[in-house]
Amino acid sequence: MNDKIQIVSIFPNLLGTYGDGGNLMALQHIAALHGIETTVTEVAPGESIPSDGDLYILGGGEDTAQVAAAQALREDGTLSAVAADGIAVLAICAGYQLLGHEFPDSDGKPAPGVGILDVKTDRLPARAVGELLVQPTAQIDGTPLLNEPLTGFENHAGATHVGPGSQPLAHIVPADVKIDFDPVLTLNWNATLDGQAAVGIGNGDGTEGATSNRTIGTYLHGPCLARNPELAELLLGWAAGRKLEPIREPEVEELRKVRLTAAANYDKTTQTQR
């Protein structure tokens, strides 16, 4: 048990577009609800990554920044080492891509990644922009990592291929899925994606995100942790060394309800709510 944790925010000025600072705020806020004290270390490029962090986070960013960040992380080496030791890492969008083996640079040529996740990213035929609604499918020893649907917004051009060394975090939920809100939020969904319109693109093959060990990469912005407290509690639980019982705040539940309903009614062809 460790009720004082250190969160390391990696290169927030390189990888911090799309409201990603919100994930750090959400971690601090949700940790406080669980009585966990947090300290935050923000690392700028050129500075070395501390090896004594309990949770490392990386956000999205533009292509030039992404290449610079990947290079700095490979030269530093600390993030790969702590991730291999089973320390929690969360990476969003560009951060997710650069944790893999390779990703496209601004000219579309493959740039080397950090290699923490067994994923490779090339380009989607068209940019993926819109609501993303996914059902978590990742498991550890037969136990689901997460249970509640994940909601967010994606804005990327990457097609990410998950290799055998990692597993997809989730699967894209088909459009028109039925959502029950009572007594708890569940998706009434039989996992057949064939031929159905789906809410979002994610990795591009019907899956979304990737995880191995205690590293999670995802395309979910929103910010991801503000809209999905279960994921924040999973990461904070790993960092604190204890399982956190869910604490749900009414305005977050209301937001999730509204977003899930909107996503299930989202028409990808017209980009409007039906």
Partner: peptide
Amino acid sequence: GRDPSWLWD
């Protein structure tokens, strides 16, 4: 803009 994530900035 369809994504209000910017509220967090």
